[in-house]
Design a protein around this nucleic acid. Sequence first.
DNA 1: GATGAATGAGAGTTCATTCAT
DNA 2: CATGAATGAACTCTCATTCAT
Lengths: 197, 197, 197, 197
Amino acid sequence: MTTKKDQIFQAIISHINKAGLLKNLTIAEIARLADVGKGTVYEYFSSKDEVICETIIYILESIMAETLFEIPTNTQFSTILIKHIEAMLKVSQKYANIDLMLMTDGISSTLEAAYKQKLLQKVIEIKKKYTDYLKTLISIGVKENIIIDIPDQYLIFIVGNIIMTGVSYYYHELPQEARNEKEHINRIYQTIIKLLS
Amino acid sequence: MTTKKDQIFQAIISHINKAGLLKNLTIAEIARLADVGKGTVYEYFSSKDEVICETIIYILESIMAETLFEIPTNTQFSTILIKHIEAMLKVSQKYANIDLMLMTDGISSTLEAAYKQKLLQKVIEIKKKYTDYLKTLISIGVKENIIIDIPDQYLIFIVGNIIMTGVSYYYHELPQEARNEKEHINRIYQTIIKLLS
Amino acid sequence: MTTKKDQIFQAIISHINKAGLLKNLTIAEIARLADVGKGTVYEYFSSKDEVICETIIYILESIMAETLFEIPTNTQFSTILIKHIEAMLKVSQKYANIDLMLMTDGISSTLEAAYKQKLLQKVIEIKKKYTDYLKTLISIGVKENIIIDIPDQYLIFIVGNIIMTGVSYYYHELPQEARNEKEHINRIYQTIIKLLS
Amino acid sequence: MTTKKDQIFQAIISHINKAGLLKNLTIAEIARLADVGKGTVYEYFSSKDEVICETIIYILESIMAETLFEIPTNTQFSTILIKHIEAMLKVSQKYANIDLMLMTDGISSTLEAAYKQKLLQKVIEIKKKYTDYLKTLISIGVKENIIIDIPDQYLIFIVGNIIMTGVSYYYHELPQEARNEKEHINRIYQTIIKLLS
DNA sequence: GATGAATGAGAGTTCATTCAT
DNA sequence: CATGAATGAACTCTCATTCAT
């Protein structure tokens, strides 16, 4: 991975964090933020749609990398789940404005059909990875008798969503002064336990 | 409400349902779909951003109107909640592609700051309305001893999200042949009960 | 001459006086100022260019009517010339912004060739009328031995221009507090005498 | 000064010389005449109003540069004044249609208020420069006893206007076959002398 | 006659993309 | 490799004009 390519990714992420997504996200602006020439962008990507598409994939994989930890043997269920939720909170702050958008067509709706399809595939792949991760994680809870049974696909989907919703609630609904990270993480954890027990 | 204005709203909704959102959603295309002249759009809206913004508000209010039923006295909790979930399923199909987008910045991220702000206000207003509705609804469940206690804001937020997530799961994750509306509605209902009991 | 037609002329004059000429001089704006419907304008004129063209002719003829006095027999040269200059000052204030523009292509340059031609003809006609008027007037001065000889076309042209320039100087170069109408009229009168004696 | 910018200036001047001013003076037409792409115009100017505004300033400064000569010591008054009038005749032919328009709001009346203001400032600046030039020039005539006294601001204004009017008369009133440059320049010169002696 | 809702040609402007340097 | 001046397709928006009422 070239440095220039990373500069471009970071430029786009920075623009989104500041400005919300698409408005004024031009190649000229991306190049300016990335501190490269406009033409240089086309050395690394074949079109604007590709830049956007690959950036989103980059973000998605970063999020996965930063939140899906290796699960060591002999780890407590609560420890690892709470660690994951904690990581989701962190990552959500880092990619403010992006987190929710990723769950939807928000970005991809501006892309040409081919790239939209490509992105969709990636999202499916990542969802699968995430669902598998949660399943593995929950199975530890089952072993520890905290959770009665391995839930089916629907319930795992709901669990994943509760984590994201919970994180979103923390940043978008709770007023700054009411925020207590540790407490809120625990709250999300308890919600999941309640649902799965 | 003018007929032409409605034609324009319907044209945009139709475009989104078919094509995903923003790509190729031009004033020319909107006018074509609405079967009016390009200039006519500007008789009813002052800019493209305003058209988009007002359409979203129109959709949001339609969804509210179609899913938030009058709660008659002496109604059973399960009856009214299930009726609501059912309506959410229907409305989600009607505004396919739009439902998820509404939860996020997906659309508003393409709007000028002023309209983004206006939309945000509307979303807050509607969220509040929905939360209040759920609270009223749940309080019936409390009276019927199906639910132990009136949940706090966080839990109501989660409940609302479970309904939406559940609906989304039905259309986007379940394969066509596995769908059974009645069963799935019940599933969502049970998930909520589990969480609140 | 219909009242509505006059309303339209006055609306345009009013707009020019306020806003400078052409910017934002739309049919919609003209109709609004004239307090008639947009369609009504087309009952009296066949196109916007015609409205503009006829308005300018209306103004030109108004100016002529208000500044070219009947010359009674036994009038003193100085009296009648000074009266004329005085009238030019008044008319120039009334049609602020318009006076200078009329001498040039300022307005006609925005008109379709046919109307430009029509206007040019009118301007030539009026210039001729004005030159003739000045000649008649000056011939009285010759009789009174104030002026040596009837000047040729060039000199009459210069005299006409000195009057207009003098008037323009009064409103555009002299600061408000330095203006003295009587004195300035006399100044212009003396300039002419100097040139012709 | 870029070549492209000059091409654009020349394109506009060429259009005005041929067609009279504003009608059909579109960005597309300017680009075509300048032999550049439409987008290129916006590399050098931020809006159409700016193109027009800067072109006028360019013309005004060109006119000044081509008509206001260095006044060498020991030059005869008549020589230098006649040389100036001669240059005015030439420049007037070069910028046909433009000369008169510059004296008025003809162009600026189509500009947005901000540019109109900017242009006005420039015109004031140039008028001052021209008046100063004429004063310096006339003061030589005073030394040579051709002119009695340094005239005041009003008279200098009139002198300047006689030059422009005289030039205008030559091209717009005199039929082609009656034109004799040398003779007409002398005529203008004599008119000035008459006024100032 | 009088109106103004409806229209679409055409204007100004943006911006992804190319390519000579 | 890196660049940014140059480009024109495609967009939003304006406004003279029409016509059913």
